[in-house]
Each structure stands twice: as structure tokens, then as C-alpha cells.
């Protein structure tokens, strides 16, 4: 075997993307991820539900924000992971990128659903309506349908390589929706309020509320990573089983 020094950067990257290596690495990472996720979510939930102030306008209803905002962020982050992996899968044909894209979809869809539902529950008492067709809400609903369409495409085509390629194209086309979601509240006037955290001039949210929100966001992100690793491991094992089965019937 050649020494590591003779490998190019690209080859080293490919070794890292090797499914067997991923299985070994994720096996060691997962317990750590689970513990950190549990700690962050426990601390975040306590801070946001019990140890943060009510809002001067919304009162206690503001607490929905601590679930809603991280969910919405992760919904978009999940899509970027999916689209990014899809691009890598299409260009470099790495099986692991393909697996990552496929595994990210249901998690992202779940966060999108959570964002839509919590937003609706907040909208009823605050705005006076469960739902409006403004640019932000509509583009978020489109994101949800993109996730569902992506998953449906995977389920329709039986052969993984072809299914992966078709789904990757859909994921990339849909990625145009992500900046539209983010800028929808800037480009058009909407019922949904503009961004409070990522805005020019710094966050428009008091520190006593921003801290619980950021801890929740970090917890949600680690939760996403944990689920992604778990789902990717499952998918790798599922593909191994499939190959073994095909080999047996072929004999």
C-alpha cells in the first residue's frame, strides 16, 4: 500500500467518503452526538419555556418562537445539505453523498412541517389567522412539497443509481427556493415579520430571549446531525443487504 503522503487531497477526500470508513467513524461519533443533543435540548427547553421573559407585545405566546424559528432554520439547512450532497453525488459520483442526500430529506421535511404547524399555532392568536398566502408562508409550503416530491421520486424508481440521479436533479432545481424563502420578507411585503436575528444592524431581539433561542438552534442542529448519521448508517446497511440478496438470486 502506498504511503499517505503520496495521496492527493482529492484521493484523501475519497478515502474519507468511503462507506466502510464512514461506518467506523459514525459509530464512534453517534454516542457523543446523542449526549450533546440531549443536554442542549434539555437546557434550551428549560430556558425557553421557564427561564426567559414574556414578550412586551405577545406575552407568553412568544415561547412558540423557540421551537418555530430553529425548525424553520433547520428546514432550510436540511435542504441545503440535501442539495449540496446531490451536487457532489452528481459531479463526483460518491455513493456516500447520494446516501446523505437521501437521508436528509425526511428529517428536513419533518422540520419544515414543524415550522409550518408552530407558525400556524402562533399566527392564530397573534395575527388573527391560521394561514395566509403571503410570500414567506407560501415559499415555506413549497419547500415542504419539494421534500415530499424528492422522497416520492426516490420511492418511485427502484434502481438506486437512477433514482439517486433523478432525485438529485430535482433537489438542485428546488434549491432556488431557499434564497427565495430567506429574502421573501425583504423583496415583497408580507404578513410574516422580517428576520429578527440575521439582519443588518444586529439582532432585534433582547439578549435574554436570544440566548435560549441560540441554544435551541444549536440543539436542533445536533439533533439533525444525529438523525442524519443514524439514517445514513441504516441506508448503507440496507444497500448492503440489497446487494447480498441480488448476489444470492443471481447465483
Amino acid at each position: 500500500m502506498a504511503g499517505m503522503s503520496e495521496l492527493t487531497a482529492s484521493q484523501r477526500f475519497q478515502a474519507f467518503a468511503n462507506p466502510a470508513r464512514f461506518m467506523a467513524l459514525s459509530d464512534r461519533l453517534l454516542p457523543f452526538c446523542v449526549v450533546v443533543t440531549a443536554l442542549l435540548l434539555a437546557a434550551g427547553l428549560y430556558l425557553s419555556l421557564f427561564d426567559s421573559p414574556a414578550d412586551y407585545q405577545q406575552g407568553e405566546t412568544v415561547r412558540i418562537m423557540y421551537i418555530h424559528v430553529p425548525s424553520a432554520w433547520l428546514a432550510m439547512f436540511g435542504y441545503m445539505v440535501m442539495a449540496g450532497s446531490s451536487a457532489v453525488a452528481l459531479v463526483f459520483r460518491h455513493p456516500l453523498a447520494d446516501i446523505a442526500a437521501k437521508s436528509a430529506a425526511p428529517i428536513g421535511a419533518a422540520f419544515t412541517f414543524l415550522a409550518l404547524v408552530t407558525g400556524s399555532l402562533w399566527g392564530r392568536p397573534m395575527w388573527g389567522t391560521w394561514w395566509v398566502w403571503d410570500a414567506r408562508l407560501t415559499s415555506m409550503l413549497i419547500l415542504f412539497f419539494l421534500y415530499l416530491g424528492y422522497m416520492a421520486l426516490w420511492a418511485t424508481i427502484e434502481e438506486p443509481v437512477r433514482a439517486g440521479r433523478a432525485a438529485a436533479v430535482l433537489a438542485l432545481v428546488g434549491s432556488i427556493n431557499v434564497p427565495i424563502i430567506h429574502y421573501s420578507v425583504v423583496w415583497w411585503n408580507t404578513l410574516h415579520q422580517p428576520a429578527s436575528v440575521f439582519r443588518i444592524g444586529g439582532p432585534a431581539i433582547a439578549t435574554s430571549m436570544l440566548m435560549p433561542l441560540l441554544i435551541m438552534a444549536l440543539g436542533f442542529t445536533l439533533f439533525f446531525v444525529t438523525l442524519l448519521l443514524l439514517r445514513m448508517r441504516t441506508e448503507i446497511l440496507r444497500r448492503r443487504v440489497r446487494v447480498l440478496r441480488l448476489a444470492r438470486t443471481g447465483r
Binding site: 395575527w127 388573527g128 389567522t129
Partner: peptide, 18 residues
């Protein structure tokens, strides 16, 4: 025939607002 309230992007405790 319908009136919806629009919330701005500001979040703060009542004491801070006061």
C-alpha cells in the same frame, strides 16, 4: 371584512420596553 395584526421583528421583555 377582515383585519389581521402584523407583528414586527422586535422581541423584548416588558421591562426593557418600559
Amino acid at each position: 371584512d377582515s383585519v389581521l395584526a402584523k407583528h414586527d421583528e422586535k422581541y423584548m421583555p416588558p421591562e426593557v420596553a418600559k
